[in-house]
């Protein structure tokens, strides 16, 4: 009898209360059934309905009210600062070992922290897809779009000179080799490239579309070489400087935005943070902000050192 009810509950459950029941009795290895992320579903539907002749689901959003600035800093708690102050030397090997070690073994650039714990090379960018908005002129400031200024990506002494590069799709990427040895520069994005650059070589690479997170650049000849490039459709991105500071100007104000924060040494997006003194858990897909027109929001972020390693 009890079991009967169990099965009838399942009917009711399947039809009416699916999620709560699954939370109660989940499979051996699996987490409980999770509710559908409707926001993401709508975004995907808008993306895939494009050009299908179907009713593209317009992302119903209010219009921005002006422009605003987001700025701030990233650092480790004082106790954690010293953990990463001494970046390890990279394991240099192979035929070019002598050349690459000339000035001492190159050091890891994946996590650069100053004496006060300020973290360089944190990437912060707008995660929203702005290609579907009704009035793009209200969302994308002229200063944040269509840049054609070349971005230089160079390598010297067997390291990439910029561990992280942020750029717009419209900007050409000039890949240089200012080294005395050949490099094989490999871009691991949606349109991958792997090309040998002789000493003094230069090629220009054009991105075809934006990437949702920084992608890796490597060199097969010198496996210790590693860098990342973030390429976006708009200019709403920044990376922290040596003092851990960043600033993004002319963001659309008065609307809900999703900002993503990424760091190489944390293996991806950052979630465990203390913002302006308040401990928070940012969703991996980004944290929400709403800016006031002509205002500046400041985020002083202390990061949990747990996910980091250099």
């Amino acid at each position: 009898m009890k079991t009967m009810l169990r099965r009838s509950e399942l009917l009711a459950g399947a039809l009416l209360l699916a999620s709560s029941l699954f939370a109660a009795g989940c499979g051996p290895n699996l987490p409980a059934e999770r509710p559908v992320d409707r926001e993401l579903a709508e975004q995907i539907r808008a993306d895939i309905s494009e050009g299908t002749g179907g009713p593209a689901v317009a992302v119903a959003r209010p219009d921005p009210t002006g422009w605003a600035t987001l700025s701030g800093s990233f650092k480790f708690a004082p106790g954690d600062a010293s953990k990463f102050s001494n970046p390890p030397a990279l394991a240099v090997s192979g035929d070019d070992g002598a050349y690459c070690n000339r000035g001492g073994a190159p050091k890891s650039q994946s996590l650069l922290v100053d004496g006060e714990g300020n973290i360089a090379n944190v990437v912060i960018f707008l995660g929203d897809n702005l290609s579907k908005v009704e009035k793009p002129e209200l969302w994308i400031h002229p200063s944040a779009t269509g840049s054609t200024e070349p971005v230089t990506f160079d390598q010297k002494a067997c390291v990439f000179l910029s561990p992280i590069t942020t750029m717009q799709v419209s900007q050409p990427l000039h890949i240089l080799n200012s080294d005395g040895v050949g490099h094989n520069t490999k871009l691991e994005n949606a349109n991958p490239m792997s090309e040998i650059l002789p000493p003094g070589g230069k090629i220009t690479y054009e991105h075809r579309k934006e990437e949702r997170q920084p992608y890796a650049v490597s060199c097969n000849i010198h496996p210790w070489m590693k860098a990342y490039i973030l390429v976006r459709n708009n200019g709403y991105f920044a990376q922290t400087d040596e003092q851990g500071k960043f600033k993004i100007e002319n963001l659309p104000a008065g609307v809900d935005l999703t900002m993503k924060v990424w760091h190489e040494a944390a293996g991806g997006f950052l979630t465990d943070v203390t913002v302006n003194g308040e401990t928070k858990k940012w969703p991996k897909k980004g944290f929400p902000v709403k800016l006031t027109a002509d205002g500046e929001m400041k985020l002083d972020v202390v990061l949990d050192a747990g996910p980091f390693s250099n």
């Binding site: 999770r34 992320d37 993401l40 579903a41 539907r45």
Partner: peptide, 14 residues
């Protein structure tokens, strides 16, 4: 788990 969330959202979208 996050990938599966994306799969579910994609199915809901389609």
């Amino acid at each position: 788990i996050e990938q599966l969330d994306t799969v579910n959202a994609a199915l809901a979208a389609m």
